[in-house]
Computed example of a mutant assay.
Amino acid sequence: MAKEFTSLGLRLHADAPHISYVFIKHHKPKEGEAEVPNALYVAGLPLGLDEVSLEAVFSVFGHVANVVLHPSKRSAAVVYESKEDVSQALQHASSGQVVDFPLPAPEGPVGLKAWVASHRAQRPGNAELQKQLDGWMEAHEAAEAAREAARQAAMAEDGWTVVVRSKGRKRAREVGGMSTVSGGIAPAAAAAARAAADAKQAKQAENFYRFQQRDRRRSELMDLRHKFEEGRKRLAALKAARHFRPN
C-alpha cells in the first residue's frame, strides 16, 4: 500500500528552512462509489492548510475543479478538470522536484503554537472558572429566592400562615404584611438526641474489631465459671448445714 504513494516536496514559505513532504496517488473510490479518474488523493498535509491553500498549491499542475478536505485536515482529495493534470502531478513528484509556492504569512500562530493557543483558549484557568461558577451560583440563588417569595406571596393571598423552622426559641414576625412564625427544637431535646447518638456510636465501636469480640466472649465465659463455682460452694454449705446436729 505504501508503494502506491509518491512523495511531493512543498516549500510553502520563502524563508522556510525545511521542505514539507506530502504523499499523493490516484484517488480510489470506496466500494459502491463511482470512479473519478481525474482525482488525486493527498495525505500527510502540513498543519494550517485549508481548501483555498491546497487549490493554490496544486493548481501549478493544472486547473483544479474541487478540493475536499478531510475533517482531520491531514488528507484531502484534489479533483482536476482532466486526468492529464493528475498524471502531470504524479510525474513531477516522481522526478523529485520541489514545488515552490510561498503562501501568505499567517496572521496568527501555526503548527504546534496554534494547538497550544487553542488549548489555552479552551481552558482559561481556575480564576475564570471560579468567576463563572460564582456567577452561576448567584443566578441560581436569586432564582430560588424569587420562587420562594412568589410561593409565600401566593400562600399569604390564600390566608395561609407560613411556618419557618429554625434553631432557637420560637418567635413571631411580620414579613411583607404576612404573619410568620418560626421555631425549632428545644435545647434539652437536642442535647438528649446528641447524647443518645453518641452512646449508640460508642456501643457500635466497642465490638467493632474481632479481638474485641473474642475478649468479650472470654470475659463472659470466665464470669459464668466464677458464678458456677460460687453457686456450688453455697450448695455444699447448705447441704452441710442440713446434717448439723446440736448437742
Rank of each mutant, 00 (worst) to 15 (best):
P246A: 03
Q201L: 05
W160R: 15
R214P: 01
E84T: 05
A14T: 07
A117D: 14
R147K: 15
A121E: 15
P102F: 13
F244H: 10
R169K: 12
F211D: 01
K227M: 10
R217Y: 01
K131H: 09
R225Y: 09
H119R: 15
W136K: 15
R232H: 03
R11I: 14
E148P: 00
M155P: 00
H63T: 07
E4D: 09
Q201F: 01
A114I: 11
K203M: 02
G183H: 06
V175S: 13
V78H: 08
V42L: 09
E157D: 11
A236R: 04
R218F: 08
A186I: 00
E107L: 12
K200V: 03
A143V: 13
N126C: 11
A154D: 06
L133Q: 05
K3C: 13
S182I: 07
F208T: 00
V110R: 02
L221I: 06
S182M: 13
P106T: 06
E107F: 09
W115M: 15
V86L: 04
E33H: 06
V181C: 07
R217M: 08
F101P: 01
Y21A: 07
A14D: 12
S53Y: 05
R217E: 04
A76M: 04
E229W: 13
G177T: 13
D134E: 07
H18C: 03
V64I: 08
L129T: 03
V110P: 02
S7M: 12
R11G: 06
K25H: 09
D134S: 03
D223W: 10
L103G: 07
Q212L: 12
R225E: 13
Q213S: 05
A105R: 10
K200E: 00
V99A: 14
K203Y: 00
L90A: 01
H140A: 11
A193S: 05
A172G: 06
V79M: 05
Y21N: 05
V42Q: 00
E144L: 09
D215N: 12
A156Q: 05
L12W: 12
A197S: 05
H13Q: 08
R214M: 06
V162S: 06
E138H: 01
A89P: 02
P187F: 01
R245N: 11
V116Y: 11
Q122C: 02
D15H: 11
M137P: 03
H26C: 04
V57M: 13
S182T: 10
Q213E: 14
D198W: 04
A56L: 14
K203D: 00
A117C: 09
L45E: 07
V64R: 09
S7C: 15
K167M: 07
A14R: 09
G176Y: 15
A2L: 14
V60C: 08
P246T: 04
E51F: 02
E81C: 11
E229C: 07
I24Q: 04
L45I: 02
A146W: 10
V79T: 10
W136E: 10
N38H: 03
A89L: 10
T161F: 06
E31D: 09
P17Q: 07
D158F: 06
N207K: 11
H243D: 08
R151M: 12
P102E: 14
A43M: 09
K170H: 02
E31R: 15
